[in-house]
Design a protein around this nucleic acid. Structure first.
Length: 584
RNA sequence: UGGGGUGUAGCCAAGCUGGUUAAGGCAAUGGGUUCUGACCCCAUGACCGAGGGUUCAAAUCCUUCCGCCCCAGCCA
């Protein structure tokens, strides 16, 4: 998809397989202007720059969709660059996971993946150039002293006693830092800017520190490492990035970004910030996600309850749904806004509705006996995998159009679908009421069997043979249609049912307190389900709709004969909502 | 209390070089359709953080105030 100014707010993509339509946001408008003004030679070159210190989550997806999306729209390029300047935190395991996640989301970077560590040599040269200009010096204060003399938000800082060192001395010291002559923490390289700058970032920021730690790529080749402020702008410059898009918390850093590129006289990329993504009912900060994993609140980074891309993938969220969500949330500079989780779910349902075959499964079975149905008889009904009204099977579907479903005298239906004492608006099964068993017969409840505890253990019904296939020749209608599974044929399976991890948004969590206090203890529930036999051989990664219940994906824990499904998302349930409203 | 940002319906978000009936989506509600109470279709909502001012005319310009976010890591 190339950018065509003449049809700017384009969303015309009628193929339906395109990236989601993206509206003009302030970033794209800025790029439009840059293009019109001929800046950067008409190039657009972005980058997605994660630090390989953890797994990507849906917040990163917003940035990925932006950076790769913009590049695609303008016929430009997008690099994947690992911001690996802090060896203490970074690991190869994460770079591999990040690459896989970006690809899964549907994007491919231009050329090989880059690393800030690729530029360590060049960065050192830039540092020396800065020293030579008198714009950087080696400070030999302790970390505490540097902090104590930085001043406060309202008071200026105090110059370091080492601020006046000569260029020669600074150059010598810096080279010896690099050569490994000094212990960790004994010296740092600082920019010489302004200790009274109102922007704290500009009070002689530290550019390099001595840190003897094994780097995941460069090993022990280096003992000094650049900091973000020094490495990021110069990495952008080296790669010829035109638009350096990052989140709002880096706004204050833009000044040092511009300052360094200007002082060094190198190619100047331009930083633009946008608001990071927040979503209700979950947390999106790396720190908190780590706590969830390490605190044992979830099974791991790819727990289906996690907002990590690996978790969402395992849960069954299709990448196109995540892209669509990012497109719908939009871009702005308003911080602290929180997207509703419901929007994400809407996007997931929208994507899955088109592509998921339907089958019947019962999550909470109760036995139904059809008194007038012959004992030992089994009928097989051919049922479509895709509803005809929805246009039938999608192009991507390579399986059969239908499957055979066995019906017999004893069935299992959803416990929720029966009510002994049912209100008028309850369209399902109840004593004396007739409903349709999907694609099979109309049945009427004649009574129930209970155990000593008073629980219904069996529902007795009679069926109308004339309604075979699910329609009454006399034209009579029923309000309810229930899904069902033959008791004799139902395949046992576990279904993991998920709920929100948190009651509200992470941003609503009290600061300081332990946010895990607000964890939903019921975020995972396991149902012993019974499925129609057609899905007995479902394989990991398969996604199906359990009719009337939701979309389910076969988990990696699943084994033949021991199936495990994750409920990706429920279907909208107007009845449950109405009842809930009436109840409360 | 320094600096940098930001504030449009329940949520996200256009519009902001002044004049539009203040886009669109999600949610909600009502209705239609329906062998998934799903999908689909139709309908319903804001006077733009607050107060002044400029103007024939302001969400859009000026001003004052209020709220919220970010910055005092040798993290990114």
């Amino acid at each position: 998809m190339t950018h065509d100014p003449a049809s700017a707010p384009a969303s015309s993509g009628s193929s339906g397989q395109d990236a989601p339509a993206v509206s003009r946001d302030f970033i794209r408008e800025m790029i439009d202007k840059d293009m019109a003004a001929g800046r950067y030679g008409g190039r657009v070159h972005t980058r997605f720059p994660p630090e390989p210190n953890g797994y990507l989550h849906i917040g990163h997806a917003k940035s990925i969709c932006l950076n790769f999306g913009v590049a695609r729209e303008y016929g430009g390029k997008c690099n994947l660059r690992f911001d690996d300047t802090n060896p203490a935190k970074e690991e190869t395991e994460y770079v591999e996971a990040i690459k896989a996640d970006v690809r899964w989301l549907g994007f491919e970077w231009d050329g090989p993946e880059r690393y800030a560590s690729d530029y360590f040599g060049q960065l050192c040269e830039y540092a020396e150039a800065l020293i030579a200009k008198g714009k950087a010096y080696v400070d030999s204060q302790t970390a505490d002293q540097i902090r104590d003399t930085r001043g406060t938000l309202t008071e200026p800082g105090v110059a370091s006693p080492y601020r006046g060192r000569s260029v020669e001395e600074n150059l010598d010291l810096f080279r010896r830092m690099r050569a490994g002559e000094f212990p960790d923490g004994s010296h740092v390289l600082r920019a010489r800017i302004d200790m009274a700058a109102p922007n704290m970032v500009m009070r002689d920021p530290v550019l390099y520190r001595i840190r003897r730690a094994r780097h995941h790529r460069t090993g022990d080749a280096w003992c000094i490492y650049p900091l973000y402020d020094f490495a990021h702008c110069l990495s952008d410059s080296i790669e010829g990035i035109t638009h350096s898009l990052c989140t709002l918390e880096f706004e204050n850093n833009r000044e040092i970004y511009d300052w360094l590129l200007a002082e060094l006289g190198v190619y100047r990329s331009r930083q633009t910030e946008f608001a990071r993504l927040n979503i209700t009912h979950t947390v999106l900060s790396k720190r908190k996600l780590i706590q969830l994993v390490q605190g044992g609140h979830v099974r791991g980074w790819d727990d289906p309850r996690m907002p990590t891309l690996s978790g969402l993938r395992r849960r069954g969220y299709p990448p196109e749904a995540i892209r669509e969500f990012c497109a719908r949330v939009g871009m702005s500079r308003a911080a602290g806004t929180v997207a509703e989780y419901g929007l994400l779910e809407f996007c997931v349902r929208e994507a899955l509705n088109r592509t998921s075959p339907r089958i019947m499964a019962v999550l909470d079975p109760v036995r139904v006996v059809i008194e007038n149905y012959p004992e030992g008889r089994t009928e097989w009904f051919e049922m479509p995998y895709f509803p005809e009204e929805g246009g039938g099977a999608p192009a991507s579907w390579t399986g059969p159009e239908t499957r055979a479903v066995p019906f017999g005298r004893e069935l299992l239906i959803e416990r929720d679908d029966f009510r002994e004492d049912a209100p008028k608006k309850f369209f399902r099964l109840a004593p004396g009421r007739e409903v349709r068993l999907r694609y099979a017969y109309f049945v009427t409840c004649t009574g129930v069997v209970k155990n000593e505890a008073g629980e219904v253990t069996e529902i007795r019904c009679v069926y109308d043979p004339a309604t075979q296939g699910g329609d009454a020749p006399d034209g009579r209608k029923v309000k309810g249609t229930l899904h069902w599974v033959s008791a004799a044929h139902g395949v046992p399976a576990r279904a993991r049912l998920y709920e929100h991890m948190f009651a509200a948004a992470a941003v609503d969590a009290p600061e300081g307190g332990d946010f895990t206090d607000t964890l939903n203890p019921g975020s995972l529930r396991i149902a012993q389900a019974r499925l129609e036999p057609a899905v007995a051989d479902a394989k990991t990664g398969d996604v199906v709709q359990f009719e009337r219940l939701g979309y389910f994906r076969v988990d990696e824990d699943s084994r033949p004969g021991n199936l495990v499904f994750n409920r990706t998302v429920t279907l909208k349930d107007a009845w449950a909502r109405a009842e809930q409203k009436a109840g409360s």
